[in-house]
Design a protein around this nucleic acid. Structure first.
Length: 646
RNA sequence: GCCGAUGUAGCUCAGGGGUAGAGCGCUUCCUUGGUAAGGAAGAGGUCAGGGGUUCAAUUCCCCUCAUUGGCUCCA
């Protein structure tokens, strides 16, 4: 007999070799019907796998993240089974579950696989699912595994097996399908009731550009048809928040092929929004002791040779600008830091002056890959809310913590509560990608983690995500469709001070090298605005809204009063427009609602006589008549409430 | 850069081997109005660009460009 400990702490006895499904059945039949897998001593197992020792178990259903992952992983196998049946000779790569669904990477050989074929594959998958084929686990020796895939002529699986240790290899079977797989899987395919194959994409084998590109088929599946329908509806809803769509609808920004790919044009309303964000941060930065600086959009090539950027990215960048002077070359600036280093060097510094914090909304240009351009989130010209802090080595951690505070203040004020703090480290396998000594890197990586820990930030460490000159603390936020973007970033840099030979005179009257911290709470205005649009669905907080009010006269008889009201509001720095059109009030209201204008000020005979404003709040409706003072008070209170630290 | 999809009016989209349609928007006129669309008339298109097949291409085929879902990359 073995002792099984359940999550509530109770212990039950079962015969040796019982499975978690047996445990579930002994609790209730209903539960057993929903069990997809189980966590055995913290490891996810098949519910049908025999348990041989005393164990703590947790049964997993669709409501558990691990249960869903198992379900989707099994769905990937179902996809592979369908593909093998429909396209004989297809070779399989890998097929994992992902955050919302699954994919399988396959090699169709000469055949191109298009999206119009997905429906037929879906149908086949459903057919196979209905057979309720059981998943079976099989331990297999390395030799036998290699033999199986040699016969199948699948070089991808062979490569995978060759990297595994003998004795740890398992196959899974369902129906006529066999796959190299660690598992676990759901009990049988019948659990999968609804399937949607969402897209086809190219994906390099093992994520390496030098390898062959396989065809990746993405899909998602559910235990109930209704859940699939709801899932698809959610995606449709999310698409309505897409910043590219809203940017067009709300006249915020545009692109022009004539101007160039990935070079955003900010329309007046978008510029208003952007200016408000800039001013908000400027104010916070003045409080935090930053000094604004301004630098040009280009710099001599030598500047970037010194910084190391030229060597690293020169080939893949916008190419140098030439002048009538033979051999003279300038580069569009890809970063502001080299310029700021030169500002630091403008005159000698004393230790008493440090830390020095130079801030600039600096526009930079990077030649991003063609296929990677994406709305405002990935562009070739963008403005960083950049700053560089030059400090003594003993000030690094304190400064770093202050920057974390600033980033959190900004995120908080804008309601970005759902972010991931990512410690981006060097890839230990590929150190040549980075500049700077091991000792400096180790120290910087340690200091970032310590600072984050002191602020009680929950961090995720990602190897290989560091900048080439130093490790970073990145603040990642998801867009409407769940794609992750880096917004805020804080980076410790021991390298540039070295390269630019930055110095300060210490208390000992000796020259010392300062440390640099790069930081950008927004990251870039472009990307930040994009994510902001998606977060609020275009309903910006009042203080940010490009048009805060729309003054809507009932008819042209009240134009003069409307103008008077508008002028009065403008005096209070409240921005918007008067709707002069020859339209009925219902129409004017509708249009202002569609454009998501926060406040509509309706003026007619009644208002003119009483010297009042009829106020309507976007999304709320009619708020009744208010005096001018009562409205401005309400307006200010709303802004104060939005900006108060939550 | 690579794999897939898409490209028709300012926007959203329908259509289809015989030289093009809707709704919204825009212009003009009528209407002067009370909390989410008043009425009428009109303008607007080398059907992304180039090449091919054909008596005839916007429609079929190829290439290019752009957009887009991914992959790789990302100072």
């Amino acid at each position: 007999m073995i002792k099984i400990t359940l999550p509530d702490g109770s212990v039950r006895e079962y015969s040796k070799g019982s499975s978690s499904m047996d445990v579930a059945k002994s609790i209730s039949e209903g539960l057993a019907r929903n069990v997809l897998a189980a966590k055995i001593n913290g490891e996810v197992w098949d519910s049908f796998r025999p348990i041989e020792e005393d164990s703590a178990i947790q049964l997993l259903t669709w409501n558990d993240t691990d249960g869903k992952a198992t379900f989707w992983h099994s769905s990937a196998h179902l996809l592979a089974e369908a593909l093998e049946a429909m396209y004989p000779g297809v070779k399989l790569g890998i097929g994992p579950s992902i955050e919302a669904g699954f994919y399988y990477d396959v090699d169709f050989g000469e055949k191109t696989f298009g999206e119009e074929e997905l429906a037929a594959v879906e149908k086949k998958m459903i057919e196979l699912a209905r057979q309720k084929n059981e998943f079976k686990r099989q331990d297999i020796s390395k030799a036998d595994a290699l033999k199986y895939y040699t016969e199948k002529d699948d070089e991808y699986k062979l490569e995978l097996i060759n990297n595994l240790d003998d004795g740890t290899i398992t196959f899974y079977h369902q129906g006529n399908f066999t796959d190299l797989c660690r598992g676990p899987h759901i009990p049988h395919t019948g659990f999968v009731k609804a399937i949607k194959l969402t897209s086809v994409a190219g994906a390099y084998w093992r994520g390496d550009e030098n390898n062959k590109q396989l065809t990746r088929i993405y899909g998602v599946s559910f235990p109930k048809q209704k859940e699939l329908t709801e899932h698809l509806e959610r995606i449709e809803e999310a698409k309505k928040r897409d910043h590219r769509k809203l940017g067009k609808e709300l006249d915020l920004f545009a692109f022009s092929e004539k101007v160039g790919l990935g070079l955003p044009l900010w329309l007046p309303k978008g510029t208003m929004l952007r200016d408000r964000l800039e001013n908000f941060l400027r104010k916070a930065q003045v409080k935090a002791g930053y000094d604004p600086v301004v630098t040009p959009h280009i710099g001599n090539k030598e500047l970037y040779v010194t910084s190391g950027h030229y060597e690293k990215y020169g080939e893949d960048s916008f190419q140098p600008i030439h002048t009538p002077h033979e051999g003279e070359e300038f580069l569009l600036k890809p970063m502001n830091c080299p310029h700021h280093c030169e500002i630091y060097k403008a005159r000698p510094k004393s230790y008493k002056e440090l830390p020095i914090r130079y801030a600039e909304f600096g526009t930079v240009y990077r030649y991003e890959q063609h296929g990677e351009l994406h709305g405002l989130t990935r562009v070739r010209g963008f403005t960083q809310d950049d700053a560089h802090i030059f400090c003594r080595p003993d000030q690094v951690k304190e400064e770093f913590i202050k920057v974390i505070d600033l980033v959190l203040y900004v995120f908080n004020a804008l309601g970005f509560t759902d972010f991931t703090a990512q410690v981006s480290l060097r890839d230990p396998e590929n150190k040549t990608k980075y500049i700077g000594s091991d000792a400096l890197w180790d120290r910087a990586e340690r200091e970032i983690q310590e600072a984050a820990d002191e602020k009680n930030l929950i961090t995720v460490a990602e190897k290989g995500e560091a900048a080439f000159y130093g490790p970073k603390l990145d603040f990642m936020v998801k867009d409407a469709l769940g794609r992750k973007w880096q917004l805020g970033t804080i980076q410790v840099d021991y390298n540039l001070p070295e390269r630019f030979e930055l110095e300060y005179t210490g208390a000992d009257n000796q020259k010392h090298r300062p440390v640099m911290i790069h930081r950008a709470p927004f990251g870039s205005l472009e990307r930040f605005v994009a994510v902001l649009i998606e977060h609020c669905g275009g309903n910006f907080p009042l203080w940010l809204s490009p048009d805060q009010i729309a003054v809507l006269p009932i008819s042209e008889k009240y134009e003069a009063y409307a103008q008077k009201v508008y002028n009065q509001l403008a005096e209070e720095d409240i921005r918007g427009f008067i709707d002069h059109r020859d339209e009925k009030i219902g129409r004017k209201i509708r249009d202002a609602e569609v454009k998501k204008v926060p406040y509509m000020i309706i003026v007619g005979e009644k208002e003119q006589e009483n010297n009042e404003l009829s106020v309507r709040r976007h999304g709320q409706g009619d708020l009744g008549s208010l005096s001018f003072e009562a409205f401005t008070k309400k307006y200010q209170e709303e802004i104060d409430k939005d900006l108060e630290t939550k």
